[in-house]
């Protein structure tokens, strides 16, 4: 009797613990996506006045269902959107690759440091992650500007006479993404590498394998989960990045996050912005699923 009561109470607590965050996420994370989907299919009554006027001439006489896919058709027909999606993917893939090339040896170097140095270096990698993203991007505006620190330094040394244009172009966007997203690459790699069994490398060396050989045949395959997690953590958010192309790219770099925000704020075309968001989400669903799969596996391995 008592045991049953106890179990019942326990299951009541259990239910409460699960249900509260569950409902919050359903309401404020999942439900909004359905609303975005619905509005991207042109719900005229929700849209703001400019939108209504824009489509009035098309609305006349046609059944309402015709309107439904207009936003998506528009995305397909106007080459600006296609080029912007493509450019966003290009920029985030290249940035991810650069992050990996730089971040991998850094993470490996940290793992191979002495215990105290290791903790300090790890702290040094995490610290920028806590400081303001916006301000870290701003710091690069000061470095890259025509009158900025780098140009001033180069002119002072005498290497150049005229400032090199480094701000408000694609180069600045790459620098910004690599700089701000680097900790997201290093930390999963570090977590993965720290669990590596060092004796495997020694065994390979004892058996006569050259260091490069050992790296490509032993270390690299074993760190694959870290590489995948880190790359996805950089690639997914970088594809939809808004602040970096807006501040460092000026108006000159096409990226979809910036276009979406402009459709929303400058053009107040919310249904079109929704359609842009839906297509972006479709592009990112696969990488997100892969990330989730690895994340789930990592949690289970720890437990």
């Amino acid at each position: 009797m008592l045991a049953r009561l106890l179990r019942k109470m326990q299951s009541k607590w259990r239910t409460i613990v699960i249900v509260i965050p569950f409902i919050w996420l359903l309401l404020f994370f999942l439900a909004p996506f359905f609303i975005v989907g619905k509005i991207s299919l042109a719900e005229l009554k929700i849209a703001s006045p400019p939108f209504t006027e824009m489509f009035d001439w098309k609305d006349g006489g046609f059944p309402k269902i015709r309107l439904v896919f207009d936003n998506y058709l528009y995305l397909w027909e106007d080459s600006l959107y296609f080029r912007t999606y493509l450019n966003s993917l290009k920029i985030s893939i290249i940035s991810t690759f650069i992050c990996l090339l730089i971040g991998y040896p850094i993470a490996y170097g940290i793992v191979r440091s002495g215990p105290i140095t290791k903790q300090l270096l790890l702290f040094a990698v995490i610290l920028p992650f806590w400081t303001s993203f916006l301000l870290r991007v701003y710091a690069w505006m000061g470095l890259l500007a025509d009158q900025g620190t780098i140009n001033n330094l180069l002119i002072w040394i005498g290497l150049i006479d005229e400032p090199i244009r480094m701000l408000y172009n694609e180069f600045a966007v790459y620098v910004g993404i690599v700089y701000t997203y680097m900790p997201f690459m290093i930390l999963p790699l570090y977590a993965n590498m720290e669990k590596l069994d060092g004796t495997l490398n020694e065994a390979a060396a004892d058996l006569g394998s050259k260091p490069t050989n050992t790296f490509f045949n032993v270390t690299l395959p074993l760190t694959m989960p870290g590489i995948i997690a880190g790359s996805l953590l950089v690639f997914i958010p970088a594809t939809g990045e808004y602040v970096i192309p807006d501040l460092l790219g000026g108006g000159n770099v096409l990226m979809i996050g910036r276009l979406l925000f402009n459709e929303f704020s400058a053009n107040t075309d919310w249904p079109l912005a929704s359609a842009v968001a839906v297509v972006l989400l479709i592009l990112l669903v696969l990488p997100m699923t892969i990330y989730q799969y690895y994340q789930g596996k990592a949690t289970e391995a720890e437990a």
Binding site: I236, G257, G296
Partner: peptide, 21 residues
């Protein structure tokens, strides 16, 4: 899934979807 997705979701999507909600 709903616990992991916000970590990587591009901010423009989260922002727009919450506004429309």
């Amino acid at each position: 899934g709903m616990l992991v997705a916000p970590l990587v979701m591009p901010e423009v999507i989260t922002g727009l979807s919450l506004l429309l909600l």
